[in-house]
């Protein structure tokens, strides 16, 4: 597949809840320094995949490697310390803690010996990226709007300086204005050297910033594309756009999201 070294690699991973496997046998590589988007219809196993990567779900089989290091046996906390940042789709901030405390928690358990100055610098970098958060540090995270909450969640994952960032639908539930802002922030984070693997339903916006696209259907990888070619592929169009000729973004991102989720 890709010639670049893998930031994240799954080898023959099977995972699921209860008796059934949701992921049958997934093997994929996310290239270092790039943004890889995983697309797939509802129920394809995207969330199961990202939870397995973060360590919240133990795979039944297979191996997971971060930067070549086998992390399969590590807990979520150990994976975070190994450089894996994760932003869940929902419940992604500590709602009853302040924004400042959320950011601090994002840093202090990964860099346990960091000085105040190192934390201050890391926080300044995050607040540069998301200036909306700066005046609200003493407010409760649960009081933030959806878009601001998503920014805080991403800031908390970034503040520790991860080498790989996992994003579970960073634009889900956001107003159109925030969708572009959010994905631009993802691109900016990536330019600073962080490899990104994300799940996204908002495919048109996602492909604007992505380098690679991977299609997941029914718990199996169906293929891998260059982001530019992804939406033009007939199979992808049949799956997401109902086989119509419509490829350009509709005027309303909300509508387009609905279209993307209809398998």
């Amino acid at each position: 597949m890709s010639e670049a070294p893998a930031a994240l690699e799954l080898v023959d991973v099977a995972a699921g809840y209860g008796a059934a496997d949701i992921l049958a046998s997934v093997t994929l590589r996310a290239a270092a320094g790039r943004i890889t988007t995983i697309a797939g219809p509802n129920g394809a196993g995207k969330s199961t995949l990202i939870k397995t990567l973060a360590g919240l779900l133990r795979p039944r089989r297979g191996r997971i490697l971060v930067g070549g290091r086998d992390v399969t046996a590590l807990s979520p906390a150990e994976r975070a310390r190994a450089g894996l940042g994760y932003v869940p789709q929902e419940r992604n901030v500590f709602r009853n803690l302040t924004i400042g405390e959320n950011l601090r928690i994002g840093h202090e358990f990964i860099h346990r010996r960091a000085s105040r100055r190192e934390f201050a610098l890391a926080r300044a970098r995050v607040l540069d990226l998301f200036p909306d958060l700066a005046p609200r540090l003493n407010g409760l995270a649960g009081a933030l709007s959806g878009g601001q909450r998503q920014m805080l969640a991403m800031g908390c994952a970034l503040i520790s300086g991860p080498s790989v960032l996992l994003l579970d639908e960073p634009s889900a539930g956001l107003s159109p204005r925030y969708v572009a802002t959010m994905l631009d922030a993802v691109a900016q984070v990536n330019r600073s050297g962080v490899s990104v693997l994300m799940i996204e339903q908002n495919l048109v916006e996602a492909m604007r910033v992505s380098h690679d696209a991977i299609l997941l259907v029914g718990g199996e990888i169906r293929g891998r594309w260059n982001a530019a070619a992804f939406l033009a592929d007939p199979e992808v169009r049949t799956l997401f756009l109902g086989g119509t000729q419509r490829v350009a973004a509709p005027a309303q991102p909300e509508r387009q999201r609905d279209g993307a989720s209809a398998a």
């Binding site: 807990s75 979520p76 975070a80 992604n92 901030v93 928690i105 358990f109």
Partner: peptide, 18 residues
């Protein structure tokens, strides 16, 4: 902070390295 984070959301606390 670790205690309050776990009380708030145990999974997220683990993801944050706690």
């Amino acid at each position: 902070r670790a205690m309050r984070a776990i009380a708030d959301d145990a999974d997220l606390a683990e993801v944050r390295g706690i």
